[in-house]
Amino acid sequence: MTLAAQALTQLATWPDLAEAEPSCGIGQALRSAQVEIAHFHSDNDVDLHLTARAIRRFEEHLVATATVRLVPGSQWATLRLDVTADFHLLMTLVSLALQAHQAWPVPGDVPRAECNDHHSAVHPRGHLSEG
Rank of each mutant, 00 (worst) to 15 (best):
S95N: 14
G108R: 03
A5S: 10
V106F: 03
D43E: 15
T13F: 01
V94T: 14
D47E: 06
S23P: 05
G73R: 02
E21W: 01
L8C: 03
E19C: 10
W76Q: 12
P111K: 06
T65K: 07
D16P: 02
W14L: 12
E130R: 03
T9V: 00
I26P: 00
D47K: 03
Q6E: 13
P72T: 13
G73V: 01
M1W: 07
Q99S: 14
L11N: 00
V63H: 01
A20I: 01
T65S: 15
D86W: 06
R53G: 10
S42N: 08
Q28C: 01
V46E: 06
W104T: 13
H118A: 15
R31E: 13
A33V: 13
A5Y: 00
R53I: 04
V35T: 13
V68L: 01
W14Q: 13
T65V: 12
H88Y: 11
I55K: 02
I26K: 12
S42G: 10
T84S: 14
S23D: 11
R53S: 10
S74I: 05
G73E: 05
T92I: 08
S32G: 09
F58M: 13
G131Y: 06
D43V: 05
S74Q: 02
T84Q: 15
S95E: 15
E60I: 07
T78G: 07
I37Q: 03
H88A: 12
S32L: 03
V68S: 01
